[in-house]
C-alpha cells in the first residue's frame, strides 16, 4: 500500500469557532492502525494535535473517534481494513475540547447516580459463588468505557432526554446480575435512567469494541425486569407476594 491520505478534524476553540478537516499524507507501515497514523502526524508534522490515547492495546478505551464516520477505537482499527482514504473525527455526541478530544465528564456524574454494588448483608466470608453464575455479569464487566456506544446512540446524540445511555445500562446490568447483589436497579433505570427512550435499534451493540451484547443482554433484560415491577400486573402481584414471604423469613 502507498501513502495514507489522512483527514483529521482540527478544531482549536481559542482561535476558531468551527472545526475543519485537514489532510495529511502519512507513509504506510505494515500492520499499521489508525492511531499509528495519527501519532505520526503528531510527532512528525504538528505536535499541537490533541488526541487522547493511553495503552494502544484496546484495553483502556481512550482513543475513541469516528473513523470514516463509524465510531471506533483508533488503536483497534487497522488501516488495511479500511483503505487509504481515512477520515478521523472526534466523537460527535460530546462537546469538543480540541481536535479529537471531547469532554466526556458527563459520564462520571451519571455513574455516580447508579446505586453501587450492595451485597447481601451478613454473608459469611469468603463468599462462595458458583463458577457459572459469574458469567453473565462478567460479560458486562468487559466494558472499557470507551463511550463509543454512547456516541453512536441516537438518543444521546440527537435528543435531549434523561436517558443515561448504553454504557450506563451495561454498568447497572453488571451489578444487577451480580449473583450476590440485592438491589434491583431496573425500576430506577425506568424512572431516572430513561430506559424507555432506548428503542432497541442496536447501533451500540454494533460498534462495541469488546463485543458486548449491550442491547440483548443488558438493556432488554433491564426492560423486562422493569416491566415485571412496573407494568405487568400479574408479575407485580407475584413479586409482591414473594418479597412479603422473604420478609417473613427474615
Amino acid at each position: 500500500m502507498t501513502d495514507i491520505n489522512l483527514k483529521i478534524y482540527r478544531f482549536n476553540p481559542e482561535e476558531e469557532s468551527v472545526g475543519k478537516f485537514v489532510e495529511y499524507k502519512v507513509p504506510y507501515v505494515d500492520g499499521m492502525v489508525v492511531l499509528d497514523a495519527v501519532r505520526y502526524v503528531q510527532e512528525k508534522i504538528d505536535p499541537t494535535l490533541a488526541i487522547r490515547w493511553n495503552c494502544k492495546a484496546a484495553k483502556c478505551g481512550s482513543c475513541s473517534a469516528e473513523i470514516n464516520n463509524r465510531p471506533s477505537l483508533m488503536c483497534k482499527t487497522r488501516v488495511d481494513s479500511i483503505g487509504n482514504n481515512i477520515s478521523v473525527a472526534p466523537m460527535g455526541a460530546y462537546p469538543n475540547i480540541k481536535d479529537l478530544v471531547t469532554d466526556i465528564s458527563a459520564n462520571w456524574s451519571i455513574l455516580k447516580k447508579i446505586p453501587p454494588f450492595t451485597p447481601k448483608p451478613g454473608m459469611e466470608k469468603p463468599w462462595r459463588i458458583h463458577p457459572a453464575d459469574v458469567e453473565r455479569s462478567k460479560e458486562f464487566k468487559k466494558c472499557i468505557e470507551c463511550f463509543l456506544c454512547q456516541d453512536v446512540c441516537h438518543v444521546i446524540r440527537e435528543h435531549n432526554t434523561k436517558y443515561f445511555g448504553p454504557r450506563h445500562m451495561v454498568k447497572a446490568a453488571s451489578m444487577d446480575m451480580h449473583p450476590l447483589d440485592v438491589l434491583d436497579r431496573s425500576e430506577f433505570l425506568d424512572d431516572e435512567g430513561g430506559i424507555g427512550f432506548c428503542n432497541i435499534t442496536k447501533c451500540c451493540q454494533d460498534v462495541c469494541p469488546e463485543h458486548i451484547h449491550i442491547t440483548d443482554n443488558a438493556i432488554i433484560q433491564e426492560k423486562e425486569r422493569a416491566a415485571d415491577l412496573k407494568y405487568d400486573p400479574i408479575a407485580m402481584i407475584i413479586k409482591r407476594r414473594k418479597s412479603r414471604k422473604e420478609k417473613v423469613v427474615k
Partner: peptide, 20 residues
C-alpha cells in the same frame, strides 16, 4: 482480594465456589 470482592469485583471461581 476479599475486600475487592466486597466492592463488587467478580473473580473466576473454583467448582466449589471459591476464588480460582
Amino acid at each position: 482480594v476479599f475486600e475487592l470482592e466486597s466492592y463488587g469485583a467478580l473473580f473466576d471461581r473454583t467448582p466449589d465456589g471459591r476464588i480460582l
